[in-house]
Amino acid sequence: MELCVNGEKLHLPDGATIQALLDHYKLQSVRVAVELNRDIVAKKAYVTTGLKSGDTVEIVTFVGGG
């Protein structure tokens, strides 16, 4: 399936979850927040939330700012 992750196209195997997506990028769930089609996904739901082709995902983290 084809996803749009942080504005970039990404292909993942069908049935992949949010957790699988984070694993793909080697990201720790404790350091990010995830939006799926503009809705925030709770951390505890990462392993159960499946993705489908055409989904738009934002993965954000904290950076330096003022």
Partner: peptide
């Protein structure tokens, strides 16, 4: 201390270091 929210850099991840 105040921090900003930005897209995670998915490929070049600042050597894996997070500000936190």
């Amino acid at each position: 201390v105040t921090v900003a929210v930005r897209r995670e850099r998915l490929l070049d991840k600042n050597s894996g270091r997070n500000i936190l």
